[in-house]
Design a protein around this nucleic acid. Structure first.
Lengths: 201, 201
DNA sequence: TGCCGGCCATGACACCTGTCACGCCGAGGT
DNA sequence: ACCTCGGCGTGACAGGTGTCATGGCCGGCA
């Protein structure tokens, strides 16, 4: 029996995924959690073989939870399962030590298949996404540019961002300008959108 | 047996939901579709009693699909199931003739419960969300203001929006200004965000 | 009929933004 | 020691943006 941990913030899909996996004769869902902070404890407590982690979760991020899990619980493999096939997500998931990456658009059989393969020690990655990830490349943004874009997401003015980040207005505008240039955007809002789509935030 | 149709664009959660509902002895999933355009045909073909519709789907919107379904297939009740508990979604879903509204944060039992209740002719609505919906009220935006905000989502300049909507630059700015005022925002981007969160787009 | 509200447009004004040039500092690499 | 790169800051400038007043057009409503 493959012991699986399911982590997803939406209770409904979490339960549904668990129900679907539970239908397989060789798979047993031993734990379900709704936040990234509970992942490590639950995995250790229930001795999970495979952890299925969503990216967007309250508390700890799914990607950082993956890294923590790899460090804390040896022998527990990780599949990152996300709504958005952002190239950057894949890269960060692999860097965090994940063994698999599944998009929620994928057919259901692909997930159970991924669970089995990952449990067998293989890596499972959507080839289309892998190509995109390589094409898109790593994030060109510096840490500060990323911070500024993150803050800019909710639509405040430059002064708002400057106050929030304890920076000068001019500095913020410089970072924004450089981020706009690097993303190939023509507006701050467009830069935010593009960076988000690439998974650079 | 309650004959259920499941419509969701993400194949994985669609399959998972179907698997979960299929576990119930009195529920049978007779059809699964991944776009709003297939809903009406599938519901008629498989004589569904209850249709479970996601809001965001390719092709036809889940909410408009609900309206079409009510008009085309008598006796088929609708549950709208969405990731985001936007007040405006609830209002539009009810206006479209939906009998139930379930958020994906809700516990799994709530969904199967909703299916049974709706099939029995009852209405199922999250009370918290209903209160929010009443508090937030209907959209204060005019049709044009909504259009402009919709186009403004991808972060173009005023001139871009003007060209796309075949309007004058000044007119676009007027609509934006008025939308900013009505949403209580201080920036175009903030107005977009707020309107989105209220479900006014 | 008159009135009101939405839609479109113009023009003007103050302010915000995006860009550029320039400088200072500290960390890391050769 | 030198150079490079990222972070931080200033100042200035052109162009974009948000606001307001004003006006015309149309459809609905008392």
């Amino acid at each position: 029996m493959i012991r699986v941990l399911v982590a997803d913030d939406q209770a409904l899909v979490r339960g549904a995924l668990a129900a679907m996996l539970g239908l397989e004769t060789d798979i047993e869902v031993v734990a379900q959690v709704g936040s990234g902070d509970e992942v490590v404890d639950a995995a250790r407590l229930h001795r999970a073989d495979v952890a299925l982690l969503d990216v967007q979760m309250p508390g700890k991020d799914g990607l950082t939870a993956a890294a923590d899990l790899r460090a804390a619980v040896l022998g527990c493999r990780v599949i990152v399962c996300t709504t958005f096939g952002r190239p950057g997500y894949l890269a960060r998931a692999m860097a965090a030590g994940a063994s698999g990456f599944v998009v929620k658009d994928a057919p259901p059989e692909q997930l159970v298949d991924a669970v089995r393969r990952v449990h067998a020690g293989l890596r499972v990655v959507d080839p289309v996404l892998a190509a995109e990830s390589l094409a898109s490349g790593a994030s060109p943004l510096t840490e500060r540019e990323r911070d500024v874009l993150l803050r800019a997401q909710d639509g405040g003015t430059v002064s708002d961002l400057a106050r929030a980040l304890h920076l000068s207005d001019g500095t913020v505008r410089n970072h924004l300008s450089s981020a706009i240039g690097k993303t190939g955007a023509r507006t701050r809002a467009e830069a935010v959108r593009l960076a988000e789509e690439h998974g650079w935030l």
